[in-house]
Each structure stands twice: as structure tokens, then as C-alpha cells.
């Protein structure tokens, strides 16, 4: 696929600015339309789109590396904004969410429920919140693009990610 430089100019500017975006630099990357998890899930159900959930943490070095190196990649920006409803959770935060069950919990507690043992931690979900794929730790732009192909093209319905990755290499 050929990339149109004009289309990606704003993202390129943002990617250049990312390292200078201030003290909360390990928070969600600029240029992405992240929503709180519960809002994202509602939107995903309304639009029947899958969810990409980013568990970060304020001050997390690997989140910062992911933001700087991977989420600044124009291909990742384009594909993920186009294919998913984007959600961000701060795994130490006391901000509250409402789960589909009606339960109100904090963002930190969501990490307990989803067994998020470290950050960054990435989740691909069905529109109803069902798990598709979990990806812990730093991921390169190419790895994100491979996850995107696996999920967005529906390969996960036929094979495991390991099988897909072996065939995709």
C-alpha cells in the first residue's frame, strides 16, 4: 500500500513532537483518539467495531518507548485509528469506569480483572469486550501491524496468533 504524505502530515508532526510533550510523557500518545474504556466499549458496540485497549502507567519507561517508537509510526496511526475504537487505561488510576455488567470500578481494578501484570499491555477485543488477543510489553511498529492484520483481517477466527505469525513471517 502506498502512503499519501499529505494525509499523514499531521501525524508526522505529532510524532516529531512526542518526546517534548511534557512531564506526563508516558501517558497516552498524542494524535490518538483514546477514550476511557467504558466509553470505548459503548462506542464499539454501537458501531460494531473492535476495541484496541492500551494499558499504560504514568511514568512507565516501556510505555514511553512504545509511544515514541511505535505509536509515532504513520502506518500504525492510520491502521489503528481506522480499524479500532481506541481505549486507554492508566493502571494505577482511581478514575472510575462502568463495566457492561453495571459494576463501577476504578481503572486500577480493571487491571486486576484482566490480569494485567505489567505495562504496557495491549488488548484486542470484540465489540462486546470479548478477548481476541493479549500482547504484554513493548511492541515494535511492525509487531503492531502484524497484530492488526491478524485481528482486522479476521485470521484469529481460524488460527492462533503463533500459527498466523509463523505463516506471516
Amino acid at each position: 500500500m502506498k502512503l499519501d504524505p499529505k494525509r499523514f502530515a499531521p501525524y508526522l508532526v505529532l510524532s516529531i513532537m512526542l518526546p517534548w510533550l511534557g512531564a506526563t510523557r508516558a501517558d497516552p500518545p498524542g494524535g490518538w483518539q483514546f477514550l476511557p474504556f467504558d466509553q470505548a466499549l459503548r462506542k464499539a458496540q454501537q458501531e460494531q467495531r473492535r476495541v484496541f485497549l492500551y494499558f499504560g502507567r504514568h511514568g512507565c519507561p516501556s510505555c514511553e518507548k512504545t509511544n515514541r517508537e511505535s505509536f509515532s509510526d504513520p502506518r500504525v496511526v492510520e491502521h489503528f485509528n481506522a480499524h479500532y475504537v481506541l481505549a486507554y487505561v492508566d493502571s494505577e488510576s482511581g478514575e472510575r469506569l462502568r463495566l457492561p455488567s453495571g459494576e463501577r470500578i476504578t481503572e486500577m481494578e480493571l487491571g486486576v480483572r484482566l490480569k494485567v501484570f505489567g505495562t504496557p499491555f495491549f488488548y484486542f477485543m470484540e465489540p462486546d469486550g470479548g478477548a481476541i488477543l493479549r500482547a504484554p510489553g513493548y511492541q515494535s511498529a511492525d509487531e503492531f501491524l502484524r497484530y492488526d492484520r491478524f485481528v482486522n483481517e479476521g485470521h484469529y477466527k481460524q488460527r492462533s496468533f503463533a500459527e498466523f505469525k509463523a505463516a506471516d513471517s
Binding site: 508516558a26 502507567r57 511514568g59 512507565c60 519507561p61 516501556s62 514511553e64 518507548k65
Partner: peptide, 14 residues
């Protein structure tokens, strides 16, 4: 956290 000069310096472990 990583020492000054290394990747992630100035950030923390949580």
C-alpha cells in the same frame, strides 16, 4: 528506574 543517560531515565517502576 534506569539511570541518567539510559533509555527510560527519569521514569519510574510503579
Amino acid at each position: 528506574a534506569p539511570p541518567p543517560g539510559e533509555e527510560g531515565a527519569g521514569l519510574g517502576s510503579g
